[in-house]
């Protein structure tokens, strides 16, 4: 794996037992992702997008093949090592935001740093920086139920980026947002990708997201059918 590469999969296969049958969710996938990419795995439901994200996010292990994420072989990681890798280097953004409802915006964003044991002063500064990036510094004391969908997703982004991860995985991040909020959220992500040089990998079939991607990897029935780099200028503003 080259130095600039964050992720490399070689002949990745993921199978799920389905009664007597075996479902092949990912079939012999060999891909690599470099630092600073803004890529998306595109495909219809059941094509294997989320399974791929699960594996490169160290939430699952491959059935066959090798997966190297940030220098670690995913198939060899213990639960604890995988959790540590996620905690320090991987940010997650979910379709349904998944903010912790009893905590404030500040506390939600602070949580990953608490797990890392970051000292309180640095923690406070990092959280406010992250909220500044997503334009929600003035909502730090609000609770998730006081936020709109777009604001909630921006808080989720702040929570993902607060630890300055090398890799951010976003699963259908605009599925619960209207067009205007989707664009706002995606603009924020593009900006963060450029400023923080964090690698973004999306799983999506949403056209609103697809038009922002600089690399589109199309999956159908667990196989890569197209892997195309897009012209940067073509991105919507």
């Amino acid at each position: 794996m080259q130095d600039s590469q964050l992720i490399e999969t070689q002949n990745l296969v993921k199978k799920f037992p389905m009664g007597r049958e075996t479902l092949v969710a990912l079939d012999n996938i060999s891909l690599s992702f470099s630092k600073g990419e803004f890529s998306g795995i595109i495909g219809p439901s059941g094509s294997g997008k989320t399974t791929f994200l699960n594996i490169i996010g160290t939430l699952d292990v491959p059935s066959e093949g090798n997966v190297n994420v940030l220098g670690a072989q995913v198939e060899n990681l213990s639960h604890k090592e995988a959790a540590q890798l996620r905690n320090r280097h991987i940010g997650f953004i979910f379709q349904t935001f998944n903010l912790l409802p009893v905590y404030t915006v500040f506390e939600n964003v602070e949580f990953p740093l608490l797990l890392q044991g970051v000292p309180v002063d640095k923690r406070k500064q990092a959280v406010m920086d992250a909220l500044d990036w997503v334009g929600l510094a003035d909502r730090a004391k609000s609770r998730p139920n006081q936020l709109s969908g777009g604001e909630s997703q921006r808080v989720a982004i702040a929570r993902a980026i607060v630890k300055k991860p090398s890799l951010i995985l976003a699963d259908e991040p605009t599925a619960n947002l209207d067009a205007e909020n989707s664009h706002n959220v995606l603009q924020t992500m593009v900006q963060l990708n450029q400023e923080l040089e964090a690698t973004f990998i999306f799983s999506t079939h949403d056209e609103k997201v697809i038009q922002y991607l600089r690399r589109k990897i199309s999956l159908i029935d667990g196989k890569v059918v197209k892997d195309e780099a897009m012209d940067l200028v073509a991105q919507p503003s």
Binding site: A83, L100, F111
Partner: peptide, 16 residues
């Protein structure tokens, strides 16, 4: 259930 899932995904290990 959801909260526990998010915490595991964020990188909190099960023992913690």
């Amino acid at each position: 259930y959801g909260e526990i899932g998010v915490r595991l995904a964020i990188g909190e290990d099960k023992g913690h």
